[in-house]
């Protein structure tokens, strides 16, 4: 704790790095996951193979994937982001696909019957109804991304993992504890925030 207080400047910049890594990875992951999910809902034939592939990627240990990408992308920020994006895909796509396919048929029929075209139905009806499940997936993805981003310090991607690795290398107990506490606080904070967003997205649905 005292380490955190005394070194708040350097810890602060590590937190910013960690957040940046996490947020940019999640943003890219969402940009990929949303259209992928919509495609999988429209073309059910693709659902099995694509989810299967994402499942396989998800089972590769994160450290292995980080190291495997070094020959392709080198060290630093980019291989870390690619790894994080790959890990987030499974839970995001799976949750959004489930959310979109579980919508009551009567609701979709009403939407069509009222004269919505495909896009209008997606934006006005389907996406908002699938949002709670997508956000639940996003919360889980965020927590695992924060965790895996810590390991990414191993390939010089920066972030709070640096404190842990430095601490281990120099046998600095204080640094290790400080890093662990900081990462955990970040995860707790993200969890609480996203729970609120999730609750907001469910308004009306379980009243």
């Amino acid at each position: 704790m005292t380490y955190l207080v005394q070194n708040w400047r350097s810890v602060g910049s590590l937190v910013v790095e960690h957040l940046w890594l996490t947020l940019s990875a999640l943003a890219i992951a969402l940009v990929i996951a949303v259209p992928t999910s919509i495609l999988l809902v429209r073309i059910p034939r693709l659902r099995g193979p694509v989810l299967g592939l994402l499942g396989v990627l998800y089972t590769i240990p994160s450290l292995s994937l980080l190291v495997l990408l070094i020959p392709l992308l080198g060290l630093g920020y980019w291989p870390a982001v690619v790894t994080l994006v790959i890990y987030a895909q499974l839970v995001l796509v799976r949750n959004l696909v489930v959310g979109l396919t579980e919508i009551d048929a009567a609701i979709l029929e009403a939407a069509n019957g009222m004269g919505m075209n495909g896009w209008q139905r997606l934006i006005i009806v389907e996406f908002p109804l699938a949002l709670p499940l997508l956000l639940a997936g996003l919360r889980i993805a965020t927590l695992s991304t924060i965790g895996i981003a810590t390991i990414a310090a191993f390939i010089n991607a920066g972030g709070l993992g640096m404190l842990l690795f430095d601490g281990v290398r120099s046998s600095n107990q204080e640094k290790i504890v400080a890093g662990a506490i900081a990462v955990s606080l970040l995860a707790f904070g993200a969890n609480a925030l996203l729970r609120q967003v999730e609750r907001w997205s469910r308004r009306g649905l379980d009243a």
Binding site: A106, E109, G113, M114, G115, N117, V125, L129, G204
Partner: peptide
């Protein structure tokens, strides 16, 4: 056009099909 046709015809069903996330 099918969407235009449907907007000109009111449609009500047993399950109501009300959108639960909309007021």
């Amino acid at each position: 056009p099918v969407t235009e046709l449907r907007r000109r015809i009111g449609y009500a069903i047993q399950q109501t099909g009300l959108f639960p996330h909309l007021r």
